[in-house]
Design a protein around this nucleic acid. Structure first.
Lengths: 236, 236
DNA sequence: ACTCATTTGTTCGTATGTATG
DNA sequence: GCATACATACGAACAAATGAG
């Protein structure tokens, strides 16, 4: 079903996550992997490229590949993951409330904010994420109804991405993301347990399908003391 | 000296940045590029992969590649760029002050914070970034003296990365990065024009050489109203 | 509905270059 | 100098998505 290099990538990643190869240890050479998986070196390299890119291993010309210490990259938000995926992989227990679920029309000022096309209809959804009985994240979602049709409040309580990808068969492509710090609004005070915090950490997502059309704008407003964003970057 | 696919990548990227191919427009096909550059398809694809990864273009199976609207990414701190590189590409005019430049020893509590090896010696440097006569960023750097030897206060006023890469010939590999929001400290109040802002946005960098050894810890403390972090992510 | 050319996606095999020990 | 391992490059083939006829 999937391509071979993805399968190999997932198998090796699993071995690293299960500590069958530990941090600091050397991976088998590319040629060894060729024999293990019966694949060409190009295919093996494509699989290993993914691990390098995600920060699981690093390569050294002439020496080999080594597993990196993954001490805290337990992805609060590393890639383009849904909230449910991120929460599950971080092992924390969240619950979701949906205090608002309605259809609206994108006007000029909303277009300015969301970059969604003017005059289209969209679902506007608020979702509150609770951790340890405290409301720490407010997600404000806009989905074009034209693309994400038939959404219900039930799905919003679970994973909307699951619905989009599995039920509708749509392929999510990429997102531009902006992180900023903003003063708390009346809405934040109403929907979050902001305590005395005067600001929130805001993550804005402009999400596109694989064909390049933007179908979503989401703004995640985090109570600053619970906000952590982790990232892995390579030079050049 | 560079590899062919890097050259090709840079040429095409230049064409996009100079708007010779505009947002929404289609790129020449891979086979066309093969003829243009006299390279194999594999090499062309490696060059194009980089553009895809950085969010300049998106690919559509069976159709072609299209240039993305780059309104957000243009002043991106998304990659592992030095402050000087980022400032130059964003076109803003910053100046740098160096109020502290000293050698210290990594003790246990500093190891906890920086992850640098205990008992090694390090440069500890404060650097203030001024924009429009306002001190908006405080960089706190630790560099292992063993690796980054011979650093002077003059270099610290320019680009330390330039010194590390060009003068010392060291190869920077990758960094783990954490973004958080923290209450202002007395140090922030002293070195930054924090105004009435009660918090700062903090970016922590754990930077490693290509051989995997960590040689730097840097904490960038931003006044929250001037802090923007942009990112580009793909769904896998 | 079907065929066909175009274009991207995956895989293979092979060769050569370069860094490490 | 030599063996090992990663880096780059070429060419070929077939698969899969798209759009035109």
């Amino acid at each position: 079903m999937n391509s071979r290099y993805i399968e190999i990538y997932e198998e090796i990643k699993k071995e690293i996550l299960e500590q069958k190869i530990r941090a600091g240890e050397k991976l088998p050479s590319e040629n060894t992997y060729c024999k293990i998986y019966g694949a060409s070196r190009g295919t093996i390299r494509k699989a290993l490229d993914l691990l390098v890119e995600e920060g699981f291993v690093h390569r050294q010309h002439g020496k080999g590949m080594y597993v990196l210490d993954h001490h805290l990259i337990s992805f609060s938000f590393g890639g383009l993951a849904s909230f449910k995926e991120a929460a599950e992989s971080s092992g924390q227990f969240f619950t979701t409330l949906v205090p608002l679920f309605e259809k609206i029309r994108i006007d000029d000022s909303l277009h300015e904010k969301t970059k969604l096309p003017v005059d289209k209809e969209a679902y506007k959804i608020y979702r509150i994420r609770k951790l340890d009985q405290e409301r720490v994240i407010l997600d404000i979602n806009y989905f074009l109804t034209e693309i994400v049709s038939g959404l219900t409040i039930n799905q919003a309580e679970g994973s909307i991405y699951e619905y989009i990808e599995e039920k509708l068969g749509l392929k999510i492509g990429f997102a531009q993301r902006v992180i900023q710090v903003e003063p708390v609004t009346a809405k934040d005070r109403h929907f979050l347990d902001v305590k005395s915090h005067p600001v929130v950490a805001v993550v804005k997502n402009f999400v596109h399908l694989q064909d390049g059309t933007q179908f979503e704008y989401t703004e995640s407003r985090h109570r600053p003391d619970r906000f952590v964003f982790t990232d892995f970057v390579r030079r050049r």
